[in-house]
Simulated scan of single mutants.
Amino acid sequence: MTNRRKPLHAKAYRSAFLRSRAWFARRDEWFAEQSLVLHPLACAGCGRPASKRELELHHLDYARVHQTDDGRWVARERHADLVPMHPYCHELLHRLIDRDAVLSRHRTRRAASEIALKALRRKLQALNGTAS
């Protein structure tokens, strides 16, 4: 098991799923569901408010994402399995996971993401002088 990202050409998820109609429909559905919650959208990394156009969704779990025998993608992620992030914060999160042997190889995707997200928040708070 590995949580490290693979080169774009070597990973169907990044080269096909994230460009599929299924993903764009699920992404739109996630933001529609989120709009029903009273909390405004914000990046899970830095905590800054953001609009749908400014955010990407990080997957905590891929269990409900799969490709059918005829090559179509199915995206049935649970609402809580997707985390909104600015592209920059999202990239930093993946770098934390990729560069840590324990997170990249010896943790579930969800656990690695949650641990890295906490570390990212601490680092960003320290940089902004808002550490508590």
Rank of each mutant, 00 (worst) to 15 (best):
V65T: 15
H59N: 12
D81A: 15
Y88S: 14
P84Y: 02
L57G: 03
P84R: 01
R64A: 11
V83N: 00
L93G: 07
H58D: 05
L60S: 04
V65A: 06
W73M: 09
H59A: 08
L93V: 10
R72Q: 12
E91D: 07
R72A: 10
H90R: 10
R78T: 01
V74M: 14
L82P: 02
R64I: 03
P84T: 05
V74E: 03
D70K: 13
D61E: 11
L57M: 09
H79P: 08
Y62G: 07
P87E: 02
L82W: 04
M85D: 06
R78Y: 06
Y88L: 14
Q67K: 15
C89E: 05
V83H: 00
A75Q: 01
Y88F: 09
R76S: 12
R72L: 12
R64F: 11
A63K: 11
T68C: 14
V83G: 00
D61F: 02
D81C: 10
D81R: 00
A75M: 08
G71H: 13
D69Y: 06
A63Q: 11
V65F: 04
H66S: 10
R64N: 13
E77Q: 13
L93C: 11
Y62L: 09
Q67A: 07
L82G: 02
D69H: 14
Y88I: 06
G71Q: 09
L93I: 12
H66P: 00
H94P: 07
L82A: 06
V65S: 04
H90Q: 05
R64C: 07
L60P: 01
D81N: 12
V83D: 00
M85L: 15
P87N: 04
Y62M: 06
H59Q: 12
Y88E: 05
L60M: 07
L92G: 01
L60C: 07
C89S: 15
P84N: 08
P87C: 04
L92C: 14
Q67F: 14
H58G: 04
H94G: 03
R72S: 10
H86Q: 00
M85G: 08
R78F: 03
L60I: 03
A75P: 06
P87V: 00
A75Y: 00
H59V: 00
A80G: 11
L57T: 05
L57K: 12
H90G: 01
V83S: 04
D81G: 08
P87W: 00
H79Q: 10
H86M: 01
E91K: 15
W73D: 01
R76T: 03
R64L: 13
V83C: 02
A63H: 10
W73R: 12
L93R: 08
V65M: 14
H66A: 07
L60H: 14
H94A: 03
L93Q: 06
Y62A: 07
G71S: 12
H59T: 01
R72K: 13
L57S: 04
C89Q: 03
R78I: 05
D61K: 07
W73F: 06
D69P: 15
D61V: 01
H58Q: 15
V83Y: 00
Y88H: 10
L82M: 11
L93E: 11
H58I: 04
H66T: 07
A63D: 13
H79K: 11
Q67G: 11
P84G: 02
R72H: 15
P84M: 03
R76Y: 02
V83F: 00
C89M: 06
H79Y: 14
L57W: 01
R72F: 08
L93M: 13
